[in-house]
């Protein structure tokens, strides 16, 4: 009951909030963290290399590293060096309700900042730029989206890629048979076992799945970008004090160049659990976002109208 009372207090406070971070009165998420002594960090289990579990079931990744910088900042700001960090696993479907319900304070994964989601939640500055492509088996003979006509395609429920692919299907009248699945690992399994011929997902995650497959050379990631997907830490809406803290932490990493170290660690070095190197140099659009930190979202249907 205590936590629910806090939550109500937090929501009420967030609504009234106008004060900056350094005000004496804490509000919103920061007050909740101060009162409970715990910061709750949402993570994913198979979003390689952003947020996933290593062989000891510990959440790691590029997004998790950036979030830990935010946690360090919260510790300093609240003068709570012993602040407890609690990791909470979330999925594509649960991340928004869990965040809004207060069971996590920020989500560090592979969440696209979209205009539609901004009606429900807020985002920190973009920390990665990707877009929708598809992964297929080389033996399938699929060379582009139009080869998917009448074929079966698997998607992960609750993703922006689902929408981008469906919008493309509607526009081009491909008559694709869609099957839903609950997470990326299961979607990839459907392609691996031949139940579906393709899986639309952010290309970087597809490279991660390919690298972790039993026979990585059996698969290829193909197609033009169906959508642009800027990733960012997801926060509760209407909590400017907390957002400001997170924003300035992320922008600080960009300014100091520390982001390059974190980027190299996850995208251009060997990563756990299998010691694979994704060899994914920083894209120009990400360099641009790092130069000018921003939380601009993208439209709901990728590059199609909807």
């Amino acid at each position: 009951m205590l936590r629910i009372t806090h939550l109500f207090a937090a929501i009420a406070a967030a609504g009234l909030l106008t004060a900056p971070v350094h005000a004496a009165e804490l509000t919103g998420t920061l007050k909740k963290i101060k009162d409970t002594g715990v910061v709750k960090v949402g993570h994913r289990d198979a979003s390689v290399p952003f947020s996933y579990l290593d062989d000891k079931q510990k959440p790691i990744g590029y997004g998790v590293d950036i979030c830990m910088k935010v946690v360090d900042r919260i510790k300093a700001e609240l003068k709570m060096p012993k602040l407890k960090v609690e990791f909470v696993p979330v999925t594509s479907q649960t991340r928004i309700p869990i965040l809004m319900g207060g069971n996590i304070d920020m989500e560090c994964g592979s969440t696209t900042n979209s205009v539609e989601r901004q009606k429900q939640v807020a985002f920190a500055p973009t920390y990665f730029m990707t877009g929708t492509k598809i992964i297929v088996k080389k033996s399938s003979g699929i060379k582009g989206y139009d080869d998917l006509k009448g074929k079966t395609v698997v998607f992960t429920q609750g993703t922006t890629n689902e929408r981008a692919m469906k919008a493309y299907n509607d526009e081009k009248k491909l008559g694709i048979n869609f099957i839903p699945s609950k997470d990326h690992a299961e979607s990839f399994l459907a392609v691996e076992t031949g139940r579906a011929v393709a899986f639309p997902m952010d290309d970087i995650l597809l490279y991660g799945l390919k690298a972790g497959a039993k026979n990585p050379n059996d698969y290829e990631v193909i197609g033009e970008f169906l959508s642009d997907d800027p990733y960012a830490i997801m926060l509760r809406k209407d909590d400017p004090a907390f957002k400001k803290l997170v924003d300035s932490t992320v922008a600080g990493l960009y300014k100091s160049g520390e982001i390059n170290k974190i980027y190299t660690k996850w995208f251009q070095s060997k990563i756990p659990p299998k010691g694979i190197n994704l060899n994914f140099p920083m894209s120009d659009s990400l360099k641009e976002s790092i130069k000018n930190p921003n939380d601009t979202g993208v439209g709901a249907c990728g590059k199609m109208k909807c």
Binding site: Q93, Q157, G158, I179, P180, S181
Partner: peptide
């Protein structure tokens, strides 16, 4: 396993 029955549709619509 991907059958879009009532609960699945409710989840999709909620998303």
């Amino acid at each position: 396993i991907g059958v879009l029955e009532l609960t699945a549709q409710a989840r999709t619509i909620s998303e």
